[in-house]
């Protein structure tokens, strides 16, 4: 079994004291894995992942990244610690050019390393090259998502954390984004994502957790989870339409 990159134990978090949204959730992400966090609306998925990234106050539990306790680290130190976060919406700077969006994220890189690193990102996301001097606000939904991911990857993160990368995208772009994530994992990057679109996420994921009412209620191999009746009940409140064909895990 490969080494653990992200180890979240009994995380409790919420915006207001005494009103926890995340109520003791634990997950583990191992090197070069794609781990998916699923859950019904209001399960606290988004708050859970934002708390890990330092954006929602943590009231209990611990977060370890590469064995280092990052529970109390402020959000702006996360990229330096090796965690790059891609928010669900407003994840680019709309008035800055595509290139400046990439450059502004390079604060922790060596100055002379930056131009080459930007070219590497253009090589990985060729759609962005032609738009390098376009204001990022003018990009299509899919291209914005690419830019947001490229911006996160540019700093060589130990783990890439994404909040619903398919949200608000048309079906064509949804499959494009998931193909992109699968490709990124192939290059050795560890990925943790929260997703509403369970089927597409499980198709590329290695393992998945189901979060219900702020707690991790179920864990399993991604490919098996889709047909798991427990998951169907927790997640959808009903059996998935094609359940029974694949059988329960």
């Amino acid at each position: 079994m490969s080494e653990t990159v992200l180890d979240v134990r009994n995380l409790e978090a919420g915006y207001e004291p005494g009103v926890p949204i995340v109520r003791g959730a634990s997950i583990i992400v191992r090197k070069s894995e794609i781990v998916v966090v699923l859950g019904p609306n209001g399960a606290g998925k988004s708050s859970f992942i934002k708390a890990i990234a330092g954006l929602v106050p943590i009231t209990g539990g611990t977060v370890f990244l590469d064995g280092k306790d990052i529970t109390a680290a402020p959000a702006h130190t996360m990229v330096r610690l090796g965690l790059a976060f891609v928010p669900q919406t407003e994840n680019i700077f709309p008035l800055m050019s595509v290139e400046d969006n990439l450059k502004v994220a390079c604060g922790i890189l060596e100055r002379r390393e930056i131009p080459a690193r930007i070219e590497e990102m253009y090589a990985a996301f060729p759609d962005l090259v032609r738009q390098r001097s376009t204001a990022a606000g003018n990009l299509s939904g899919g291209q914005r998502q690419m830019l947001a991911v490229a911006r996160a990857l540019i700093v060589h993160p130990k783990v890439l954390v994404l909040d619903e990368p398919s949200a608000g995208l048309s079906p064509k772009f949804v499959s494009m984004v998931f193909e992109m994530l699968a490709g990124i994992r192939k290059s050795g990057v560890t990925i943790l994502l929260v997703e509403q679109n369970a089927k597409a996420a499980l198709a590329i994921g290695d393992r998945a957790y189901v979060l219900v009412e702020g707690k991790d209620r179920h864990e399993g191999i991604a490919s098996e989870l889709w047909n798991d009746p427990v998951v169907a009940e927790l997640y959808l409140g009903q059996r998935p339409s094609h359940a029974g064909k694949g059988g329960a895990a």
Binding site: A75, H76, V79, R80, E90, F93, P94, M96, V104, G107
Partner: peptide
């Protein structure tokens, strides 16, 4: 510029 456009995202990309 980043901070003026989106303060939350500015922190996420590592801006103090």
């Amino acid at each position: 510029q980043a901070l003026s456009q989106n303060a939350a995202l500015a922190r996420i990309v590592g801006i103090d």
